[in-house]
Amino acid sequence: MSSINLTLKIWRQQNSDALGQLETYTLDAIHTDMSFLEMLDVLNEKLTKEGQDPVAFDHDCREGICGMCGAIIDGVAHGPEKEVTLCQLHMRHFKDGDTIVIEPFRSRAYPVKRDLLIDRSALDRIIQSGGYVSVNTGGTVDGNSIPIPSQQSELAMDAAACIGCGACVASCPNGAAMLFTSAKVSQLALLPQGQVERKQRALAMVEQMDKEGFGNCTNAKECEAVCPKGISIRNIARLNKEYLFAAMTEG
């Protein structure tokens, strides 16, 4: 275990109406086994002790699955490591003397609420518009009466692994939410349970996505590159197909 000294430039913004700016802080003796968020904890303890406002940031499970944390680290969502969330990024990936610029995830659909803390409720509304199978509790058939090829189930699981952190939108040059939306559409389109509402789901979710003010996908692949769960843009291709087919045959 070793330790490093860092300079941090962090986006500070009092509330959604205020103008924000980068503030510079220095931190010494950061253990390289720390996670990025633990490093921010150390900073916040220091700021608190100095009578300054700590940096507000979202976080919860700190094991890379709740999807609550995330920030742009030196221009890259969730930082330089592949397939990790910010809480699982460890300081061993930084060098002594590094300057790290930390900005909130941004998109037209993600208002900044304070510092690094943003409002991602637009993603919830996309799911609410149709990202589920409409079954009520009870009266379902035996689990084994719906056989699903293992491979198909694995593909669905690949898509279902999305944690809804929204890094795909934040990193997309166009602020598009296609990877997020396509992951849910794909998961359910691949499974027999999702067939009944397959077309309606694709139409409704894309419509909601457009309504929320997300941008247009131009296949820049940035979303896939920063996705902490490695969700493939193959899902976007699948969504395109699902949507085209649904729009041409439904209603």
């Binding site: 986006w11 941008g215 820049a220």
Partner: peptide, 23 residues
Amino acid sequence: ENRQVSTSRYIITKRVVKNSFAS
């Protein structure tokens, strides 16, 4: 449309995808 979304979003912008020049 996309420019409206993307301009001056970040102070530092970095593309992760290699060979992203064409796109």
